[in-house]
Design a protein around this nucleic acid. Structure first.
Lengths: 199, 199
DNA sequence: ATCTATTTCGAGTGATCACTCGAATTTGAT
DNA sequence: ATCAAATTCGAGTGATCACTCGAAATAGAT
């Protein structure tokens, strides 16, 4: 079926396309993190990649396309970085700790998350479904821990799931504005310890 | 010293200035909440007020001035709305409940808060000091409750203060994206109840 | 070597941006 | 009525925006 040697290259060149796209997405990630979506421009991304603005448009015909590609890659990277051997609370704290080394990722998340609540923002659907899945997934994990007897049955897992996500995001936001004064991991550990210590 | 009858009117007319400024700030509040600072334009504010764009510039010579006026008024309003007779946890929950009736205020806060983490944003200093004061003020109140014996001495009030602010903001963000699925007050109550129930 | 699809870009397009300038109008104290 | 200050705006200014168009360069399969 596939006469070409490369995986996704269907016809002519197309081989460098994948690399190019990746480097563009990386540059766009940085630009959107620094400036946000509205204030971030094609020109700024093009300058960073080292190509013309119109060259970009060959790969991503609209600005919205470029943003969605950035968000999609963000998911792929963060999914790949998850350690499946760690327990629930443990993996939350490990991820939070790892995030402090890549402030650009947190920055992008915080900016776009706020922007996405505005009218007609291309990332609104992304964040809406992201939060939905995050809450549902966390609630499922907490229910499993209740079945194991690790977490009290009196805990409302729906409330705890929303609260944990909210706490995490809010702490990262405060941390971006005052990294010396806010300890994200300590606050999350405090919350989780108290949660699992409930009667 | 003051020959004029009105309070702050120093010379000629100047009386309608105060009203005008207020209506402009109100319009700007709505525009910045809907679109954010970067995407919100003088023209949009002018249209809402019903005057020319250049007319606005007489009152607020730069866009940054307009934004800071909006934030300043936000503080005045919210400070005036605080009920001093309520206890700590009670007043948090009352405020959160009241906020659900004015989503525009929450929306403005969420958008600008995220935007403010970007480079050279005019609201960055505002949010940085706001969080500092909020954390310090909450920590003080919690310490007082520890002295009264209402709150366990084992609670780290610095962590609890940052966590409460973070939780609150994060919940409001999720609520903006899914008002039917996230109950801000219930989550805050759950956190506060657990906090005061700690041994 | 040929040919075709891919990649790249220069040169615009109209729109909108924050902001300037200078003048007209309005206003209120005198 | 007079006059100066306050208010309003029309007409720009240059910059930047996302995006179009058409053509040149490039590269890979044959």
């Amino acid at each position: 079926m596939a006469t070409s040697s490369s995986p996704a290259a269907r016809r002519g060149p197309g081989a460098k396309s994948a690399e190019r796209r990746r480097s563009i997405v990386d540059a766009a990630h940085a630009v959107f993190a620094e400036r946000g979506y509205n204030a971030g421009s094609f020109q700024a991304v093009a300058d960073r990649v080292g190509m013309s603005q119109t060259g970009l448009l060959h790969y991503f015909p609209t600005k919205s396309d470029l943003l969605l590609a950035v968000l999609q890659r963000r998911d792929e990277v963060s999914n790949a970085a998850t350690d499946p051997s760690a327990g629930f609370a443990e993996s939350v704290l490990l991820t939070a700790q790892a995030n402090e080394r890549i402030p650009g990722v947190i920055q992008l998340y915080a900016v776009l998350c706020g922007e996405s609540t505005t009218a007609d923002h291309p990332a609104r659907a992304y964040f809406t479904t992201r939060f939905e899945r995050l809450r549902a997934g966390t609630a499922d994990e907490l229910r499993a821990l209740q079945r194991e007897g690790v977490l009290s049955r009196h805990v409302d897992v729906t409330i705890a799931a929303a609260s944990l996500a909210a706490l995490w995001d809010g702490l990262q936001l405060q941390w971006l504005l005052a990294p010396e004064e806010v300890d994200v991991v300590a606050c999350l550990r405090d919350y989780l310890d108290a949660l699992f210590a409930r009667p």
